[in-house]
Amino acid sequence: MRFGDIAPGIVEAIYMIDDLNTIERLILVAANAPTLGIYLEEMEAGEGNFRMVGERFNPIESMLGGGYSNGEKK
């Protein structure tokens, strides 16, 4: 819902995840990543990674126009 329509291949990749820690991490990422692109970067990071740091994970700041997009400040 947060990112609108998602390509079927992405949805299938999410359904294939069977590690509960990875699923939990991606739920947190989905709640905090301001763009689908940032979410996909985290999804591709694989199991055992937890990198949600910095302003690029501040969805409120991004909505106000001062956040990060693709790692660069607007």
Results as ranks from 00 to 15, higher is better:
residue 64 L to Q: 07
residue 5 D to C: 06
residue 24 E to L: 14
residue 44 E to C: 01
residue 25 R to E: 15
residue 24 E to G: 07
residue 21 N to T: 13
residue 55 E to C: 02
residue 73 K to G: 00
residue 41 E to C: 01
residue 45 A to N: 14
residue 69 S to L: 14
residue 18 D to P: 00
residue 48 G to A: 02
residue 37 G to L: 06
residue 13 A to L: 11
residue 14 I to M: 09
residue 70 N to L: 13
residue 49 N to P: 05
residue 39 Y to D: 08
residue 34 P to T: 06
residue 16 M to T: 06
residue 1 M to F: 12
residue 19 D to C: 00
residue 64 L to I: 04
residue 15 Y to F: 10
residue 25 R to W: 12
residue 50 F to L: 07
residue 71 G to I: 00
residue 68 Y to D: 05
residue 60 I to G: 02
residue 23 I to C: 10
residue 51 R to S: 15
residue 24 E to V: 12
residue 51 R to Q: 13
residue 50 F to H: 10
residue 43 M to N: 03
residue 27 I to N: 15
residue 36 L to C: 04
residue 42 E to K: 00
residue 38 I to W: 08
residue 25 R to A: 09
residue 27 I to E: 15
residue 25 R to K: 14
residue 52 M to S: 07
residue 12 E to R: 09
residue 14 I to P: 01
residue 35 T to N: 04
residue 25 R to H: 13
residue 66 G to L: 05
residue 63 M to R: 04
residue 37 G to K: 09
residue 16 M to E: 15
residue 56 R to I: 06
residue 37 G to N: 11
residue 8 P to S: 08
residue 2 R to M: 10
residue 6 I to C: 01
residue 42 E to F: 01
residue 14 I to A: 08
residue 37 G to D: 10
residue 44 E to M: 05
residue 33 A to I: 02
residue 32 N to K: 09
residue 54 G to Q: 03
residue 48 G to S: 02
residue 10 I to V: 13
residue 5 D to M: 09
residue 55 E to R: 03
residue 21 N to K: 13
residue 23 I to M: 12
residue 4 G to C: 03
residue 59 P to W: 05
residue 68 Y to R: 02
residue 40 L to N: 03
residue 3 F to V: 11
residue 15 Y to V: 07
residue 41 E to L: 01
residue 19 D to P: 02
residue 34 P to L: 06
residue 49 N to E: 15
residue 50 F to R: 08
residue 54 G to Y: 07
residue 13 A to C: 04
residue 72 E to M: 04
residue 41 E to T: 00
residue 59 P to L: 02
residue 67 G to S: 03
residue 60 I to D: 15
residue 60 I to S: 10
residue 56 R to H: 06
residue 13 A to K: 05
residue 37 G to A: 05
residue 7 A to L: 09
residue 51 R to G: 14
residue 27 I to M: 13
residue 66 G to N: 09
residue 19 D to K: 01
residue 56 R to C: 06
residue 63 M to A: 09
residue 33 A to G: 03
residue 50 F to K: 10
residue 29 V to S: 11
residue 33 A to L: 05
residue 7 A to D: 05
residue 10 I to K: 02
residue 7 A to W: 03
residue 30 A to G: 15
residue 20 L to F: 14
residue 51 R to H: 15
residue 61 E to P: 02
residue 52 M to T: 12
residue 46 G to W: 07
residue 71 G to T: 00
residue 26 L to D: 12
residue 72 E to A: 06
residue 5 D to P: 13
residue 48 G to L: 02
residue 34 P to G: 03
residue 36 L to I: 12
residue 38 I to A: 12
residue 51 R to F: 11
residue 30 A to M: 13
residue 14 I to V: 13
residue 65 G to H: 00
residue 71 G to Y: 08
residue 46 G to S: 01
residue 59 P to G: 05
residue 57 F to S: 01
residue 1 M to A: 14
residue 9 G to A: 05
residue 16 M to D: 14
residue 32 N to Y: 09
residue 13 A to V: 06
residue 28 L to Y: 15
residue 55 E to T: 01
residue 26 L to R: 01
residue 14 I to E: 00
residue 69 S to R: 14
residue 4 G to L: 05
residue 42 E to C: 04
residue 74 K to Q: 09
